[in-house]
């Protein structure tokens, strides 16, 4: 049997591709668009509650505060309440 060519050796020695990773979890900022015969409207997944319910909001920012400021305020109040 004839010896393997250099190209065949390279192919044989190439490391096997890593196993396919499972699909990444949808990031909290993902948006979903409604389809069908209604006007398209985007929604944003804010996060998930401890019992697995996804909290959804329409796209768009609050008018009277920033999300970061509100989040900080909520964390402060919850921390104070927890003692």
């Amino acid at each position: 049997m004839a010896g393997k060519t250099a190209s065949q050796h390279r192919t044989q020695n190439r490391a096997k591709p890593a196993a396919r990773k499972p699909a990444a979890k949808r990031p909290a900022s993902a948006t979903v668009t409604a389809g069908g015969d209604g006007p398209a409207t985007g929604y944003k997944v804010l996060g998930t509650t401890s019992d697995g319910v996804r909290i959804i909001l329409p796209k768009g920012k609050p008018k009277a505060f920033t999300t970061a400021r509100l989040r900080k305020a909520i964390r402060t109040v919850i921390a104070e309440r927890s003692g």
Binding site: L46, G47, T48, T49, I55, I56, L57, P62, T67, L70, R71, I74, R75, I78
Partner: peptide, 9 residues
Amino acid sequence: HVIGLWLEE
């Protein structure tokens, strides 16, 4: 927004 973020936290 306040309800949504509170629920998340």
